[in-house]
Write a protein that binds this DNA or RNA. Sequence first.
DNA 1: CGCAAGATTATT
DNA 2: ATAATCTTGCGA
Length: 169
Amino acid sequence: MLKKLNTDFFIRPVVIVAQELLGKILVFENYRGIITETEAYRGLDDEACHAFRGPTPRTQVMFGPPGVSYVYFIYGMYYCLNIVSEPEGQGSGVLIRGVRLLDKPYIHLDGPGKLCKHFGITKEHKGINLTVNEKFYVLDAPKVTNYCATKRIGISKAKEKLWRFVLEE
DNA sequence: CGCAAGATTATT
DNA sequence: ATAATCTTGCGA
């Protein structure tokens, strides 16, 4: 039986966490999806990270304990889901960009906004600790190696970093 | 307090 | 390539 991912998983370097989240199962209420696409955002030295310039009311949860959800609202119409990574105080997180539904594999939610819209994830779900919550968590799964690294999408700074990871299908 | 920019998406 | 749409954070 697969176990829920715990703090030990999320406390590691954010780029590693982003890579290893591929193939894991995101569970939110009655939805389950295989994570197919992620991006790493590192607080300390990554200008594209929301937390780069220190904590603000919006980004404070990124500086909290690993394994907690960081949901933000963007472009006036979409929510995006991240999972805080690295030790507390680092301001790092992994953006979940795509999942394929477990029970409906023909539905691929390819895009962070689409994912949150389909699952019904909003700012209400920001600050939830996925390592202890009963309805919102990530299930472990065998490690995958068939993925590629590319440039991150939609950012204007630190464009060169290859911190977007996509499962090959 | 005003304002520009933004980790997107669907459409042209 | 661009509109839709509104919150956030910075500067004044």
